[in-house]
């Protein structure tokens, strides 16, 4: 069986998926990155690829995305390294042909992607504020001592959501504390927070964009049913949450990798099990003293072999490593 591996290394979670030949999800895995993407990559790869050979499954191509996509590409040997926007759009238009709007909220990022005829027509990402993203919800669930998994269930039980200022995370938090001390039920406060975050999202990220149906809501935060409900209420539109909402970026990366391999007829760059699992990966950084920029150059090593450098503006270090052959354009 031919399988395609998609990896999405984000700020909060690291997601791994395997697609089969027919574009169906074969396996998925959602891990917390916990500030150590190298470990997340090794652990994630080990469990997603566990027992594959016995079932004659073989990884034919690898795609990576997320803020850690370059690291993932180096450790695994990826055929496609793509930004999150393209990856999410590809996955959504694959699973929801005809989707027109994608709302994606992750750990640190939130984005809106407008699709027309199944291709990206316009997009925007949060710029200055992470108030509406997963990290903030995480923080609030910890403060209220409610597991993040149950946060959405509390929200949907609310009858009368309270009004909470959504313009800024700090104001939202102090508003929540104020309402909580006044004795409002916790469900109403959580739902109020969801609505505040939706307003924040629409004002900051979605401003000026035409949100049309069908709308797809994905990313880790889509687990929160309260948010989906708040979006439906405020937009007055039906919100679709895909079955695998939390790994959509990884699905997109896998689709792109497959496309790349099939169109270019070139062999995969995937380095195989041994490379990832048996290598000892280390990273260190040093300050380059070549010019007054004093770039912090990061070096990724496997045992004693240098795999990659990055962080230098002049590309002196980056280009000192032999480049893989010229990338063919994905169409």
């Amino acid at each position: 069986m031919n399988l395609y591996l998609g990896v999405d290394i984000g700020s909060v979670s690291s997601n791994f998926i395997l697609l089969d030949q027919n574009g169906r999800l074969y396996r998925k895995l959602y891990l917390r990155t916990l500030g150590n993407p190298v470990k997340a990559l090794k652990d994630g790869y080990a469990s997603i690829s566990d027992g594959l050979d016995k079932q004659h499954g073989k990884i034919r191509a690898v795609g990576s995305t997320g803020s850690g996509r370059h690291l993932a590409a180096v450790l695994l040997g990826a055929d496609v390294v793509k930004n999150e926007i393209t990856a999410h759009a590809v996955a959504a238009s694959h699973l929801f042909p005809g989707a027109k709007t994608i709302i994606e909220i992750g750990g640190q990022d939130s984005k809106i992607i407008i699709l027309r005829n199944n291709i990206v027509h316009d997009f925007a990402m949060n710029t200055v504020c992470a108030a509406g993203t997963g990290s903030f919800l995480d923080q609030q669930s910890a403060r209220l001592n409610i597991p993040i998994q149950e946060f959405g269930d509390y929200a949907v039980k609310s009858g009368h959501p309270v009004r909470i200022a959504g313009r800024c995370g700090v104001f939202a938090e102090s508003d929540m504390i104020h309402k909580q001390q006044m004795g409002f039920p916790v469900e109403d406060i959580i739902m109020g927070l969801c609505e505040a975050l939706v307003r924040n999202y629409l004002n900051n990220v979605g401003k000026g964009k035409k949100i049309e149906e069908p709308v797809v809501f994905q990313g880790g935060v889509a687990a929160n049913r309260g948010l989906a409900k708040a979006f439906e209420k405020i937009l007055g539109l039906k919100i679709n949450v895909p079955a695998h909402y939390e790994v959509m970026g990884a699905i997109g990366a896998a689709i792109l990798a497959r496309e790349q391999i099939e169109l270019s007829h070139s062999p995969t760059r995937f380095r195989g099990d041994n490379f990832v699992l048996e290598g000892n990966f280390t990273s260190n950084s040093h300050e380059c003293s070549g010019c007054p920029n004093l770039c912090e150059v990061v070096c990724i090593k496997r045992d004693n072999e240098v795999l990659a450098y990055w962080g230098d503006r002049c590309k002196k270090w980056e280009s000192s490593i032999k480049q893989p052959r010229e990338k063919l354009k994905v169409v």
């Binding site: 803020s67 930004n83 926007i85 393209t86 291709i119 990206v120 997009f123 990402m125």
Partner: peptide
């Protein structure tokens, strides 16, 4: 990331 996504688009 934004530039890459824009160029892709």
């Amino acid at each position: 990331t934004r530039l890459e996504a824009f160029v892709d688009m």
